[in-house]
C-alpha cells in the first residue's frame, strides 16, 4: 500500500469515525443521563443537516456560525422533544414501574418519534436530494498525497467539539452534576437538586451533538430525508461495542468502525461490512458490556 493511499484511507476513516464519535457521544449522554435509548437520534442528525443547509447554503451565513447555530437549534429541538414526549411519558410512571419497563417504553416512544420526524421532514422539505457546497473545496496535494481540506476540517472540528465536551463534563459543576445524575439520579435528588432540568439538559446536549454531526458532514454527503436511517444502525453498534458510559470506549469504537470500513473495504472488498458486524458480535459475546463500558467491570 502506497503512502498516498494509506493517508487517504486514514483521513476517510477519521472523518467517518469522528462523525460516529459525535453521534454515539450524544446517544450515550442521553442514554445514561435520561435512561432513554433514543432511536430518533438518526433523525436528529438528519435535521442537523437540513438546518445546516438552511443556514449555510440557503442563507449564506458564515460556516462556523451556521454550525454553531445548528448545534443550538438541535439542542432546542431536543429540549422540546424531551418536554413534549419523554417527560410526558415519565409522568405516567409510578415508583413501582420497573427499570426495564421504563427503558422499553421510552425506547418504543423514540421509535414512534423517529417515524414522525422522518415523515415530517418528507412533508416539509420533500424528497428532493440537496447538496451543500463545501466551504473548503480545496484538495491538498503534496508529495503525491491528496487530501480533501473539507475532510480535515471535519476531523478538526469534531476534535474541538470533543475537547469542549470533555471540559464541560469534567471541569464544570454542570458537567459533574450530569455525571452524578447519570450515575445515580436519586442520590442527587437527595442533595436537593431538581434532576428534571438535568434530564432536559442531557437530552438537549445529546441532540445538539447529533445535529452537529449531521451539520458538519452535510457538505461532504448529500442532504436527504433517509440519511438518518442509515447512520443510526452503526451508531447503535458503536455504542454497544464501545461500551455504554465510556468516553474512551465511544471514541475508540467510532474510530475503529471508521478504520474497519475504510481499510476493510480496500483490503477485503464488499465483505468488509459483514466483517464489522461479525466483529461486533464477537466483542459482545466476550465483553457484553462493550470494550471499555461501565458494565465491563
Amino acid at each position: 500500500m502506497s503512502l498516498s493511499l494509506f493517508v487517504q484511507l486514514l483521513v476517510n476513516a477519521l472523518t467517518i469515525g469522528s462523525i460516529y464519535v459525535l453521534m454515539v457521544l450524544g446517544l450515550d449522554i442521553i442514554l445514561r443521563g435520561t435512561k432513554i435509548l433514543n432511536f430518533a437520534h438518526g433523525q436528529l442528525y438528519m435535521l442537523g443537516a437540513y438546518v445546516m443547509f438552511l443556514f449555510f447554503q440557503a442563507l449564506h451565513w458564515n460556516f462556523l456560525l451556521s454550525l454553531a447555530l445548528t448545534g443550538l437549534a438541535l439542542g432546542l429541538v431536543g429540549m422540546l422533544i424531551y418536554l413534549g414526549v419523554f417527560a410526558t411519558l415519565a409522568r405516567r410512571f409510578t415508583p413501582t414501574t420497573t427499570f426495564s419497563y421504563r427503558l422499553l417504553l421510552s425506547a418504543m416512544a423514540s421509535v414512534g418519534l423517529m417515524m414522525i420526524l422522518q415523515q415530517g421532514t418528507l412533508l416539509g422539505f420533500g424528497t428532493q436530494e440537496r447538496g451543500i457546497q463545501p466551504p473548503f473545496p480545496q484538495i491538498i496535494d503534496s508529495f503525491g498525497v491528496r487530501v480533501s481540506l473539507m475532510r480535515l476540517a471535519i476531523i478538526l472540528a469534531s476534535l474541538v467539539i470533543c475537547v469542549l465536551l470533555y471540559l464541560l463534563m469534567n471541569k464544570t459543576s454542570l458537567g459533574r452534576l450530569m455525571r452524578a445524575v447519570s450515575y445515580d439520579p436519586e442520590a442527587v435528588t437527595l442533595q436537593g437538586v431538581n434532576t428534571f432540568w438535568v434530564f432536559v439538559f442531557c437530552f438537549a446536549l445529546g441532540s445538539a451533538l447529533a445535529g452537529l454531526a449531521g451539520g458538519i458532514i452535510a457538505p461532504v454527503f448529500s442532504v436527504t430525508p433517509a440519511m438518518g436511517q442509515d447512520v443510526i444502525f452503526l451508531s447503535l453498534l458503536v455504542l454497544l461495542v464501545g461500551g455504554i458510559g465510556s468516553y474512551r470506549g465511544t471514541i475508540a469504537g467510532g474510530l475503529l468502525i471508521g478504520l474497519l470500513l475504510s481499510f476493510g473495504f480496500q483490503l477485503l472488498g464488499g465483505v468488509a461490512e459483514l466483517f464489522v458486524f461479525m466483529l461486533v458480535i464477537v466483542i459482545l459475546i466476550f465483553k457484553p458490556g462493550g470494550m471499555l463500558g461501565e458494565a465491563a467491570e
Binding site: L31, R32, K35, L37, F99, S100, L103, L104, L239, L240, G243, I244, G245, L284, P288, G289, G290, G293, E294, A295
Partner: peptide, 10 residues
C-alpha cells in the same frame, strides 16, 4: 444496574 442497562439496550 449498569449491566442491566447494557443488556436491555442490546
Amino acid at each position: 444496574m449498569k449491566k442491566r442497562l447494557a443488556f436491555i439496550t442490546l
